[in-house]
Design a protein around this nucleic acid. Structure first.
Lengths: 256, 256
DNA sequence: TGTTTTGTATCGTATTATGGTACAAGTGGT
DNA sequence: ACCACTTGTACCATAATACGATACAAAACA
C-alpha cells in the first residue's frame, strides 16, 4: 500500500498498529484533536481514523469530548494502565527478591517523587544484622545511593537544580561541585554508593533506571558498613543481574 | 459468526475489541497465561490469539515471558497508561477550576493512599480570606470532609479497619460508632462535611469517587467556618455540577 | 456571506484477518 | 521408558473484514 522505508512493518495486524499510533497521537496532541487532526498526524484517511476511533471509543479507550469535537484518552485506558503498573510492580518485586536471595541483604526500591526519593518496596535480608527502613519513608538525593544513582541519569538541568535546592535545604557543608563529582563517578562506574554518609554505620550500593512511564526508580542494597567492603563484589554482581533482567522485561529501558 | 446474546456488539472493528479483551485477560490471569489459556478464556481459536498477541507484542503492549511461555502486559502499556493518567489529572484540574470559579473558594483534590488522604491538587479561591493547605500534605480520614467522603464509598471491611486504626493512632476520644454514624449520614446526603473538627475555624464540604484505576479520590471545598452556612448551598451546587461532569467524562465511575 | 472543518453515514471493493491444520519441543503423569 | 497434553511457531486458502472515496448537515471561522 504505502512504501515504508523507515519501518519494515513486519507481519502483524495493521489495525492494531494503526490504533496504537492513533492512541499515541491523541495523547500527544494537546488541544484534544479532531478526527481530521488525527488523520493528518498519522497520515491516514479521515474515514479510516473515524472507524478506528469509533472502535476505541466503544471500548472506552478514548472518549469523544462532549459538545464540540475532540478525542481524548478514555477511562478504560487508565484502568488498563493500572493493571500494567501492577504487573511492573510485581516484576520489580521479583527482582528485589532475587537480589536479596543472592546477597542475603535487604534490598530497597525507591522512586523519585519531587525532590525526594520515596521508598515504595523492600525485601528484607536474611542476615541477623540487617538494615531497616520502611516503605513510604523519604530520603534525600545527594547523600544516598539511590538518590545519587537517580541524579546520574536525570537530565543535566534538573539534576543540578535538585542538587542545589537540597544543599540549601539541608544546610550541607559540602560544595555543589563535590556532589557533581560524585555523580560523575556514578556515571563512570554504573554504581552509586553511600559510605555511611546518610546514616552512620550503613553503606549502600545501587543503580537507577527510568521506566517508560517517565518515572525514575532506584534499586539499592544497604548493608552494615562493617561488612560492606567484603560483600561489595557480590552485591555488584547481583545488581548487574538485576540490570540485565530489567533490560529483558522492559525493552528500551534507560538504565543508570 | 457467533451469536452474541449478551453483547449487541454494534458496528466496529472486531480486532480491536478482541485485542482489548485479550489485554484484559492477560491482566486478569495471574500466572502469566499461555496462548492456549488466553484462547480458552476469551473463547477464540489459538491461532487467532497468536496473531493478535503477536501484533500487541510488536507494539510493546505485551511481552513474551522469556524462557517458558507466558504473556504479560508490556512496558508500552505503562507508557500509554502514564499519558492517560496525565489526561485524567488535567480533567480533574479543570473540574477544580470550575468549582473554584463558581464558589470563589479554594478547592482541593485528595487521594486515599494507605491510611491517609494526600493532597494532590488544589485551586486557590478568589476570596480575600481563604484557606490554605499544600499539595503533598497528609490528612486523617475521620475528621476531614474528604476523608469521610472516601470512607463512605470504601468497602465496609476496609473502612471499618481504617477507622479503628485511626481512632487508636490519634488517641481520639470519640467512639467507633460515632464515626460510623457520621459516615452513614454522608451516604444518605451524598456530601461529607467537616465543621471545624479538623482545623479550628475551617469547615469543609466534599464528595468522593473511585477512578477506574481503583484509586479513591475526594474533592473538597474548605471555607472559613464564619461563612460556611451561608455558602453551603452554593458549594453543594458546584459539587453536584462536578459530579455530573465527572460522570460524563468517566462513564462508569463510582461516585459518593 | 462564503469557506473550511467538524462529526456522521453509506457502500462496493480487495485487502485483510481468519482459523483450520501441522510440527517440533517441552512438561507432567504413570 | 512411555504417552498424553500443552507449549510456541508456521503455513495458507478462504471469505469475511476493514478499507477509504464519496457525500451531507451542522457548526466554526473569516
Amino acid at each position: 500500500m504505502l512504501d515504508t522505508p523507515t519501518e519494515p512493518s513486519k507481519s502483524s495486524i495493521q489495525v492494531i498498529s494503526r490504533a496504537v499510533e492513533i492512541l499515541r497521537a491523541v495523547s500527544a496532541l494537546h488541544p484534544p484533536p479532531s478526527l481530521g487532526k488525527i488523520a493528518s498526524k498519522v497520515d491516514l484517511p479521515r474515514s479510516t481514523v473515524q472507524r478506528i476511533v469509533g472502535a476505541l471509543a466503544e471500548e472506552g479507550l478514548v472518549i469523544h469530548e462532549q459538545g464540540r469535537g475532540g478525542v481524548r484518552l478514555g477511562p478504560q485506558m487508565a484502568s488498563l494502565a493500572a493493571a500494567a503498573h501492577a504487573v511492573m510492580a510485581e516484576d520489580l518485586h521479583e527482582i528485589l527478591l532475587a537480589i536479596s536471595a543472592e546477597t542475603g541483604e535487604t534490598t530497597d526500591l525507591a522512586v523519585l517523587r519531587g525532590d525526594h526519593m520515596v521508598f515504595v518496596d523492600q525485601v528484607a535480608g536474611t542476615q541477623r544484622l540487617r538494615t531497616v527502613s520502611s516503605v513510604g519513608e523519604q530520603f534525600p538525593l545527594t547523600t544516598t545511593a539511590n538518590g545519587r544513582s537517580c541524579l546520574s541519569i536525570l537530565p543535566e538541568a534538573l539534576a543540578s537544580k535538585l542538587i542545589a535546592t537540597e544543599i540549601e535545604r539541608l544546610n550541607m557543608d559540602c560544595a555543589f561541585d563535590d556532589v557533581r563529582q560524585i555523580i560523575d563517578s556514578v556515571r563512570a562506574t554504573g554504581f552509586a554508593s553511600d559510605l555511611s554518609e546518610h546514616t552512620d554505620g550503613i553503606s549502600a550500593l545501587g543503580f537507577a533506571f527510568q521506566m517508560l512511564s517517565g518515572d525514575y526508580y532506584a534499586i539499592s542494597v544497604p548493608v552494615p558498613s562493617t561488612r560492606f567492603d567484603q560483600k561489595r563484589p557480590l552485591i555488584e554482581a547481583a545488581l548487574n543481574g538485576a540490570r540485565t533482567r530489567l533490560a529483558q522485561i522492559v525493552p528500551g529501558i534507560i538504565l543508570s
